[in-house]
């Protein structure tokens, strides 16, 4: 096993992927009527803001954007000892009859997305929910797939995939590396 980290996507790559995803969202939904973006804390939130900017650059309109923290909906809370910190959920609009595009950085087991969908449905009855992710690394444990994917990244279960963003931790890059020993 190669024991060092590899950059699999750089800043330009991330930007091009997001531009393409923005166009695909508009194409698939035939414009932005009733369209809202919901970013999943924390990585998905930054990507949702970037997508909103890209969509605004194309269509000239800012779509509503919400922030979702899925911690309260996790399926492993009673198994873990230390409770994860809870972030704020900020969805200042009704989701009834809206077309919701969920945004996250990495799609992996699908459990986060399951939790996110349960949470969204507590906020109303969206007309549909779509999923946009920057990286799909496989290894699904639930029947979930993304509608918009930046890059399919075949990975081993013993590797960590992280999306670094300037808003979060310095440089725009997607990194894959052997799992860090705990």
């Amino acid at each position: 096993m190669k024991n060092k980290k590899r950059i699999v996507m750089d800043a330009e790559g991330i930007d091009r992927s997001l531009t393409r995803i923005a166009y695909e969202i508009l194409e698939k939904n035939k414009g932005l009527n009733d369209l809202v973006l919901i970013g999943i804390r924390t990585g998905g939130v930054y990507l949702a803001y970037r997508l909103r900017k890209k969509i605004a650059a194309i269509e000239g309109i800012e779509v509503p954007l919400g922030i979702l923290d899925i911690t309260l909906y996790r399926d492993d809370l009673s198994r873990i000892n230390k409770k994860p910190r809870i972030g704020k959920t900020e969805i200042a609009f009704s989701l009834d009859n809206m077309k919701v595009v969920l945004v996250d950085d990495v799609l992996f087991t699908g459990r986060t997305i399951r939790a996110a969908m349960d949470a969204l449905i507590d906020f109303g009855r969206p007309r549909l929910i779509q999923l946009a992710v920057l990286i799909d690394r496989g290894h699904r444990e639930l029947p979930i797939r993304a509608d918009f994917v930046g890059k399919n990244l075949p990975s081993s279960l013993w590797e960590d995939v992280s999306v670094n963003l300037t808003e979060k931790n310095g440089a725009d890059e997607v990194v894959i590396e052997p799992e860090t020993e705990e």
């Binding site: 809370l77 000892n81 409770k83």
Partner: peptide, 9 residues
């Protein structure tokens, strides 16, 4: 209630 339920510790 959130912080005090679940696993011990």
């Amino acid at each position: 209630l959130y912080l005090l339920t679940g696993g011990k510790g």
